[in-house]
Design a protein around this nucleic acid. Sequence first.
DNA 1: AAGCTTCCATACTAATCAGTCCGGAAGTGG
DNA 2: CCACTTCCGGACTGATTAGTATGGAAGCTT
Lengths: 213, 213
Amino acid sequence: MARTGRPREFDRDKALDAALTLFWAQGYEPTSLNQLKARMGNISPASFYAAFGSKEALFREVVQRYLETYGQVTAPLWDETLAPRDAIEQTLRRSARMQTDRSHPPGCLIVLGGCNCAPENLSVQALLATERERSRRGIRACVERAVACGELAALPTTETLPVLFTAFLHGMACEARDGDGAATLDAAVTTLMQVWDGLAVKPGLFSAADRLS
Amino acid sequence: MARTGRPREFDRDKALDAALTLFWAQGYEPTSLNQLKARMGNISPASFYAAFGSKEALFREVVQRYLETYGQVTAPLWDETLAPRDAIEQTLRRSARMQTDRSHPPGCLIVLGGCNCAPENLSVQALLATERERSRRGIRACVERAVACGELAALPTTETLPVLFTAFLHGMACEARDGDGAATLDAAVTTLMQVWDGLAVKPGLFSAADRLS
DNA sequence: AAGCTTCCATACTAATCAGTCCGGAAGTGG
DNA sequence: CCACTTCCGGACTGATTAGTATGGAAGCTT
């Protein structure tokens, strides 16, 4: 069915990007509709609600877009053509670079966007928690894959390695916002990956060859 | 000068604790004065402002109390009678236990309390950032102490180890809020500390240090 | 151009935000 | 007891919150 009637005057896509930037910088709750409408091209309340439904619906759409773009830095976690170790290393390095890129707010929207929520907005907090859980499971899957192919011993790595890498991944959001640069975080990733090598079944044998990122 | 006049009816100390719990769970901005007054014993606005000055002043006092109590888990960082490695390990383990204790909200007030701030509340964000910077410097001081006493090689550890440990420390706040338990985080600390041991000068294996880009 | 559909500017809710003011009540020290 | 100090209940401020209603303008299809 073709679209009839007067077309909207603002660029919905650009408006969504503006909202993304604003939510990224401030988080869900303190970002007001007035701020949003202003940044989205001085659109009117009527236009806003016609195009996006509500503040929460807009935020869900923003999160979706974030996951499809910036959030793709974690995609290696689900790429089974990569060696498990490389998948995790690439995820961490790409996250470090992305979160510190100066073309957008520092840190990670999924980690920081819904930290401070009143009871009425718990659904927003839950939405982001679900996405964090996804990363957590992705990391765990990599570790389990490494165990399955004999690269790591089963215990205790299957339990603790995912927690360690996930905590670091999420912690980078805080460090990036506090001003750490890409090189700084990347060096920390290098150091962290030595934990993997230290736990590898054949100590040190493959570590040099695996570092081809 | 002795205190004259009608004494206040509510317990200022208990009220401060109630405010601490509320700010801890929700963060600064979404916590409203109505919520605060209700939890602080149904006190009136007049009583609130007479006792605490303003919402921000109350928050600063809450942060102060937090640092003097729960925040003391990081005290080992400045205890020079401890070996540097032990200071960091104890800090991480005590943080893990504290942040997951079910007698209060999960996570860390300093990391999570001011994540989402509107422009007008940037001072609150800055207050917490300053405290995080304090931990960061404490960790760095431990690493430098280890280098000074010959336990670690100077480069590249002085630059990267503090970043790694700090990111993990702050990342635990996210994991604790997402439901990780004390044992889970503690095991991750154990694994993380292997990085330190791998970089220790003693073993004579410089391969690890040489692998940095 | 006719008729229909959609958009948008403006004015407007009702609720909540942090914070103030006042006048009476309740204790204190002398 | 008196005078003084402090506290507190409740009404109130102006600003801001997310979201609505209305009516005219603009553009598409025929």
